[in-house]
Design a protein around this nucleic acid. Structure first.
Lengths: 302, 302
DNA sequence: CGCAAGCTATCTGATAAACAGATACCGAGT
DNA sequence: ACTCGGTATCTGTTTATCAGATAGCTTGCG
């Protein structure tokens, strides 16, 4: 038996919900069907995709990796049907994109490669800058759309936004960290640790704000602008990090493992989305971009 | 009922073979199964994908467009399974690619966007130059792999190549061209027409060589380095063109239709493939690139 | 320690889909 | 007119998918 789109859909739902039962409910199907689909998928790949624990399941590193592919495939299917059945003609023109450094590598690259394939005749330019500056550029009409963190939009009434991904903050630890032996980790546990902060897209402010609520100011071991550097530093035991889940990958560059754990108590989420100017007519090229990006999100939202 | 990977596979096979029966044979299944799969696919998309004629079938423009998506989806599925089930770790390092201007837009862009997603830690550089110069760079060790036309490799014994796509020459005509009224077109019909030649990757030499066999030298109306320009010129009636099928798209930029027709008698084919230095050990990053590219071809070859 | 709650895996029968084979049909070449 | 190469449609059969019930597991709680 070979891979089925249905299996991918159920798998994505299960990975997203962290539970077969919830996933079954989300896709309006019986629990046993989801279980069997995932079982078949694992057999077909020859890899365990989930580690089952009594209160649900979480993805293995391989599952996490495969999840990205699955989402990508489903998004591409969605685009293929949309483009063809809409009887669309080719879009031409210009598209001026803005990205922040965080969204550039982790959100835009996927969407953009797909967009380019779908609309080869659109002349795309993208600039990378801070969210604040991107807002200015959008309002000034110099950018069509920006992909950025929308949690703290400054000028919300002049801008319109569409959420692509909401990503909760999680704690990154080296595998052998002593907190890993605890069943649950609280923010006050984290407050005592050496912290590695990512100095882009206000991730630092967010992390510090979270921990400052516990009285003492957090001990910052390293401050860097590179996510890869954070990964390496965490993996080698230099400290822990509080970062949104969307930048988590199971391996660091060196191949050391790092863990990503939930922190008990509701941590805030980061919203990543598309932003454009409210009211002004949006170009065909930009409309297409929004549609392509939404196809990605559609799958995520299941 | 929603889209199935199986349907995509049968559809790709049918589009490739130009016949349901041949496709059925190619995928070792009954003819009726393929017919029904395609019928379902068309119903699901709400679009005719093939025009049926008594000796087989050819894709409609929408079918052609959907075909590219279908191939892309299947390639992505193939990559997803390969990467995960191989239990691979992440590849890092450098990859120096070479492309010719023809392959840059029509072959590399797809493969590269996929490669980037699969191997985000590889530092990719690509240069565009003539096939002849790329060969020098490969032999000199300055490039790892090149994507180029391999039909006329100069230094075949120092280089190793892997065919990605073979694409037959076809004739491009404006929809209202008088040759379109003929049931079949011969090379000598073409020899009398105004010709638009594409001045890259030796496409001009090939086209001229073909037509020169008919005594008189071809009448060249335009010579350009841009495929889009050729499309526009053909669409507006400035002449006809002889080009490999892989650069054909059903629409020109202006939205005018152009037709692509077979020319009776075996026209030569263009082979596009990967080229690297024979004998020398190939880096992990390059090996991955070859594998990703082959996944694309695998689907094509069905 | 026992029991209930929450979850996953497995089993069973019902139902729907996929399939092969046969046949009807259609146009082109002869 | 008649085959030939091809597609569409109809049949029954096989196969896979699904829902519902059930068993097994672990945690939390009395």
């Amino acid at each position: 038996m070979s891979l089925t789109l249905k299996q991918l859909r159920y798998f994505v739902a299960a990975a997203h919900q962290g539970s077969v039962s919830k996933a079954a409910h989300a896709v309006s199907i019986s629990q046993s069907a989801v279980t069997e689909a995932i079982k078949e998928l694992e057999a077909c790949l020859g890899v365990m995709l989930f580690i089952r624990h009594p209160r649900g399941m979480t993805t293995t590193p391989e599952g996490q990796q495969f999840l990205r592919h699955a989402i990508s495939i489903l998004a591409e299917v969605s685009n293929a049907t949309r483009v063809v059945s809409a009887g669309s003609q080719r879009v031409t023109g210009r598209l001026n994109l803005g990205v922040t450094s965080l969204t550039a590598g982790y959100v835009l690259s996927d969407v953009l490669s797909r967009y380019r394939r779908l609309n080869p005749d659109v002349d795309v330019t993208a600039i990378e800058d801070t969210g604040e500056y991107l807002e200015h550029l959008i309002i000034g009409g110099e950018l069509d759309v920006a992909v950025m963190v929308t949690t703290n939009l400054r000028d919300a009434q002049a801008l319109q936004s569409e959420i692509l991904e909401v990503s909760p903050f999680r704690l990154w630890l080296p595998v052998d960290h002593h907190l890993n032996r605890q069943q649950s980790i609280t923010l006050s546990d984290v407050a005592g640790e050496q912290l590695i902060v990512l100095d882009v897209d206000e991730m630092e402010q967010e992390a510090v704000k979270l921990l400052s609520a516990f009285g003492e100011r957090p001990r910052i071991a390293f401050r860097t602008r590179s996510v890869e550097a954070v990964r390496s530093l965490v993996a080698t035991g230099a400290g822990v990090a509080l970062l949104p889940d969307l930048v988590y990958r199971p391996w660091s560059l060196e191949g050391d493992r790092i863990h990503s754990r939930d922190v008990s108590g509701a941590l805030p989420v980061v919203q990543v989305g598309l932003v454009w100017r409210r009211g002004s007519p949006i170009s065909a090229a930009a409309r297409e971009f929004v549609a392509v990006a939404q196809a990605q999100h559609e799958v995520n939202a299941r």
